[in-house]
Design a protein around this nucleic acid. Structure first.
Length: 293
DNA sequence: CGGCATACCTGCAAGC
DNA sequence: TGCTTGCAGGTATGCC
């Protein structure tokens, strides 16, 4: 997936097309994605109006006029595309999707215009849930999510509190959705590089002995917010099995500083270090051992 | 509970 | 060319 900036880009791309639209039909082409579809999902969606398309962490939230919310997580390889009257239209990217992985097709009526919203997901790590808007925050997927990295809630004091006493490496602490909701492998690597913090450092010992933990946490919080804001502004990054919902693929050269750049020179001026890769909790971490301490 | 490894699934690139 | 291997942006689960 798509990390938070990509999900936000999908949301913004779909927004003008789906908000206010009526779901006239839903075709579930298989019984499950990562999990079995909720019983009666099709019936619960048919005839409903999409009141709003929101996002929490990496979840897309289709708010329905029934008071229910269709929750959609894209996993590693999920994507949406829109077609009008069977035509690919302006939202279709040149690199065509394998239709064998078109798992869910929503037919929408947008003031008389017929649209299809198609969910494609080769790896099927994505999933959909149907929850009550009033109680969705009690669902395990949402109950313990940390703050969004987009707002004022993410600051040094918040991170210092979350990291206090934790022996887990900074990399793992930032990947933990209970601390910050929506970060993934790429933007965690990028934020740690920007904050000049070593990914292996224990979260509870973010500052070297005698140092100022809250100061370091403030620097990290700032770096995270910058990295995420820039990625959203750039329309999300483009990677091989992800297609922007707005079809804007291609104009954004993903400008990662360290992610997937093993062996390259550190882009920080005067640093002179070389990017290395290490594995933490089974995931690749890219960092510069010269300037990240 | 904290921290880590593993499972889920397909596609793709690299190596032989 | 064709095979095998390892790796990929995430989350849930189970183990110590």
């Amino acid at each position: 997936m798509p990390e938070l900036p990509e999900v936000e880009t999908v949301r913004r791309g779909l927004l003008p097309l789906v908000e206010g639209a009526i779901i006239t039909d839903v075709e579930l082409r298989r019984p499950d994605l990562r999990f079995p579809f909720a019983r009666g999902l099709r019936q619960s969606l048919q005839g409903r109006r999409i009141e709003a398309l929101a996002r929490r962490a990496k979840y897309l939230l289709f708010h329905l006029d029934s008071g229910m919310v269709l929750v959609s997580h894209l996993g590693m390889s999920g994507s949406y595309r829109i077609s009008a009257n069977g035509q690919p239209g302006k939202f279709h990217h040149e690199r065509s999707k394998n239709a064998a992985h078109d798992h869910v097709v929503f037919t929408l009526d947008r003031s008389g215009e017929r649209l299809e919203l198609i969910y494609n997901d080769p790896r099927r790590f994505g999933f959909m849930l149907l929850l009550d808007a009033a109680s969705m925050n009690e669902h395990p997927a949402f109950a313990r999510l940390g703050v969004e990295p987009t707002g004022n809630s993410l600051d040094g004091a918040y991170l210092a509190r979350k990291f206090s006493g934790r022996r887990t490496p900074l990399k793992s602490a930032l990947m933990d959705q209970r601390n910050i909701a929506g970060l993934g492998n790429i933007y965690v690597c990028e934020a740690l590089w920007r904050a000049r913090l070593a990914p292996q450092r224990q979260a509870g010992l973010i500052a070297p002995e005698g140092g100022d933990p809250e100061g370091h946490c403030a620097r990290l919080a700032h770096a995270i917010r910058e990295v995420i804001a820039e990625a959203i502004a750039a329309g999300g990054s483009t990677l091989r099995d992800f297609m922007h919902a707005d079809g804007a693929l291609g104009y954004f050269q993903h400008g990662f500083s360290v992610y997937d750049r093993e062996g390259e020179a550190c882009p920080r001026p005067q640093c002179g270090g070389r990017i290395e890769r290490l594995v933490q909790s089974g995931r690749s971490t890219f960092y510069c051992p010269a300037c990240q301490n």
